[in-house]
Design a protein around this nucleic acid. Structure first.
Lengths: 343, 343
DNA sequence: AGGCTGCGTGGAAACGTTTACAGATGAGTT
DNA sequence: AACTCATCTGTAAACGTTTCCACGCAGCCT
C-alpha cells in the first residue's frame, strides 16, 4: 500500500512509474518504450507486458504540459444551429482529425464581448489554435487577434492590415450571381432580404445586391429591401413585411435560413414559387434541398473554406514564422426549382 | 536575457516565476495572490501590479495537471447536423457553462468502433466527464462505459444493470401519442417511416407503433412500414417507396428529418398535406416549424434531457461516489398544420 | 591494446502550476 | 514578561510526463 502510493496516481490509476517499477526499469526507459523510441528487445517486452498488466494509459494533461501542446483546436462560430456552420465544421473536423487534433466547438451567439473574451482566453493556451468566423469585426477583435499567443485563422472578411491567416468568401460576387440569374430568367422586380447591415456579411451582401442591380440598370426601391437577422423567424417576418408593401417577382435572401423563412411567407401569402415569385438563398446548405420546392442557393463554399482554414491553421501550428496568408473561395450558384424556368 | 530564461516560459511568455521575481516575492505568494487567497495588502498590490505589467495569464494545462481536472466536458452525438442534437447541445452548454466547464463536441457518425474508441480514450483523462447519446448499444459499449475512469452520462436507453447515470426519453409512448392523435382525427391507414431497426430508438419506435396500432384495433400492413436511416434523404426515399405501394391517409415518422423527407415525397407525388395525408414527425425540432405546412411533431424533450444529463454529470464529477441515477422525460405532442383538422 | 563509435540505460531536470509545511512576525492575552 | 494565536511568508514537493545528459558496455577499427 505504502509502496503503491509512490507510483500510482492520486486516484489509484497506474502511471509510468507503476509500469517502470513492475518492469524493473527506469521511468525513462519505460517512457521511451511506450513512445516506441528504442529500447532493447528485452526491455521492450517487459515494459509492454507491465503496461498491459496494469492497464496503463498515459495522462493526456501531463503529456500536454511537457509537450507544450494540447492537441485541441477550437472552432468559434456564431450559431451552431445554422447548417452552414455544420458543413464547415465537418470539413474542418475531417482535416484536423488527420493530424491527431480534436475539435472544440464554441457557440458565440455573435456576441462581440463573448468573442473577444474567447480570443483572450486563448492566452491560457488550452488549445493549440483557433478558427473563428466572426460576424462582426470590431477594434476589440483586431486587438485580441493580433495579441493572441496561439495561432488563429479567421474565416470571413478582415481588414487588410491585420496579420492573421484568413480565408474569405466573396458574397458580393455571390449575390451578383443570384441577381444575374434572376434577371436572365426575366425577373425585374427583385426583392432582397438581408441580415443586419452592421455585420460584415450583411454589409457585403447589401453592397453586392445594389451593385448587381445597378449593373443591370435596375433601380433598387427601398420598399423591396428588408433587414432582419440571419435566422429563420426573422427572415420570415421580414419577407412578410416586404410582401405587404410590394409585389416582387423574385426575392434574394442573404442566407438559406432567411430563404426558408421567405419561402414560408410566400406560400402563406398564396404566392406560387417559382411561378409568381422566384427565390434564391445563400450558403447552399442542406436546408435548401430539404425545402419544397427546393431552393436555388449561392454556394459560398463553406466546406471548402473550412478545409482551407484548417489547413492554414495546421501549417501555422507547425511553423509559427510563416507569413500570414489569405485564401479566397469563389462563389457558385446552384439552380433549383425555386427559381427554375424562364418566366 | 539569461535571467529571463529562468523565469519565463519556453515561448517567452511570463509565468508565475516572472511575476514573483518582478514583485519581489516567492512564487507561492504570487500564486496565492493570483488566486485571491490571502496575502498582505502590500504583497497583493505588488503582485497584481507585476502581473498586469507583464501581462501574466496562467497556463491552463499546468493548472489542470495540478488540479487533476481539465474543465472540459465532452458531448458525443451521432450527427451534429441533426437539429435535435443542436437543441440538446445548447441546453447542455447552458448548464455546464454555469459551472465553468467548456463543451467539447464529438460527432461519432453512429459508428460503434468510433464510439467505443472515444470512450476508451477517456482513460487519458483529457476531459472531466462525457455525455454520450449512442444510437446503438453493444457489449463493447457497456464494457467501455463501466470501465471508464471518468464520469459518463448516457442519453438514451441502456440496459438496467449498467451502473451509469442515464436519462431517457420514452419514444414508445411518444409514437403512441402520434398514433392516438391521428386516429382521433379519423385516420386509419397509418404508414410509418422508421430508422434502422438495429438501433435503440429504431427498435423502440417500431415496437411503440405496433403496440399503439394494436391498441386501436388497427392491423399493421407490412406494406405501410418503411425503414431507412434517420436522415432526410433516406426518409424521402422511404416515403416514396411507401407511396408506390400503398395509399396511406397518415404517416408517422421516426424523426423530423425523416418527416421533412416524407413531406417532400408527398408533395412531389401530388398529395395534399394534411388533406390527403396527415404527417407527424418526432423530436419537435425547429425543422418541423420551418417546413410548409408546419409539421406536427412528438417532442421527446431534447432540451430537457440535455439539461438533466448535464446536471447528473456535474453532480457526479463533484461526488464520484453517488449511486447511479436514471431520469425519465415524458413525451408530448405539438400539433401543427401537417395533421391539423379532423378529416 | 587502446581508442573510437554506437547503443541502451538511469538519474535528474524540465514543463508551470498549486499547496503542505514550517518558520517568522506581530498582536493580544494572562 | 511569557505565552498563545493568527497571519503572512518562503521552501520544497507534488501533479505525470518527456528528454537531456552522462555513463557503461560491447563491438570494431587501427
Amino acid at each position: 500500500m505504502g509502496r503503491k502510493r509512490l507510483q500510482d496516481a492520486a486516484d489509484g490509476r497506474p502511471t509510468v512509474h507503476t509500469v517502470a517499477a513492475r518492469a524493473g526499469v527506469s521511468i525513462a526507459s519505460a517512457s521511451r518504450v511506450l513512445n516506441g523510441i528504442g529500447g532493447s528487445a528485452e526491455t521492450v517486452r517487459r515494459v509492454r507486458e507491465a503496461a498491459a498488466a496494469v492497464g496503463y494509459v498515459p495522462n493526456a494533461i501531463a503529456r500536454s504540459l511537457q509537450a507544450q501542446r494540447t492537441g485541441l483546436i477550437a472552432l468559434a462560430v456564431e450559431d451552431i444551429g445554422n447548417p452552414v456552420y455544420v458543413a464547415m465544421m465537418r470539413a474542418i473536423e475531417a482535416v484536423v482529425a488527420g493530424s491527431g487534433h480534436q475539435l472544440l466547438v464554441h457557440a458565440t451567439g455573435g456576441n462581440v464581448a463573448g468573442e473577444t473574451a474567447l480570443l483572450r482566453r486563448l492566452a491560457h493556451r488550452y488549445v493549440d489554435g483557433m478558427i473563428i468566423s466572426p460576424i462582426r469585426v470590431t477594434d476589440a477583435h483586431v486587438e485580441a487577434l493580433t495579441a493572441s499567443p496561439v495561432p488563429v485563422v479567421v474565416v470571413g472578411q478582415l481588414p487588410e492590415e491585420v496579420p492573421v491567416d484568413n480565408v474569405r468568401a466573396d458574397s458580393r460576387t455571390g449575390i451578383a450571381l443570384a441577381v444575374d440569374h434572376l434577371v436572365a430568367a426575366g425577373r425585374t422586380r427583385i426583392g432582397f432580404v438581408n441580415g443586419p447591415l452592421d455585420t460584415v456579411p450583411g454589409a457585403a451582401r447589401d453592397a453586392g445586391f445594389r451593385a448587381a442591380m445597378a449593373r443591370h440598370g435596375l433601380a433598387v426601391d427601398p420598399a423591396t429591401v428588408e433587414v432582419g437577422d440571419f435566422q429563420y423567424a426573422a427572415g420570415r417576418a421580414a419577407a412578410e413585411r416586404l410582401l405587404d408593401r410590394t409585389e416582387p417577382d423574385a426575392i434574394v435572401c442573404a442566407n438559406d435560413l432567411i430563404a426558408v423563412g421567405a419561402l414560408h411567407a410566400l406560400l402563406v401569402a398564396g404566392r406560387r414559387v417559382p411561378e409568381d415569385v422566384a427565390l434564391v438563398g445563400m450558403d447552399d446548405t442542406e436546408l435548401a434541398q430539404m425545402s419544397f420546392p427546393q431552393i436555388s442557393s449561392v454556394s459560398l463554399g463553406s466546406a471548402e473554406r473550412g478545409q482551407l482554414a484548417a489547413g492554414l491553421l495546421l501549417d501555422r501550428i507547425a511553423d509559427g514564422t510563416l507569413a500570414p496568408r489569405r485564401e479566397h473561395v469563389a462563389p457558385s450558384l446552384a439552380v433549383r426549382a425555386s427559381s427554375g424556368g424562364v418566366r
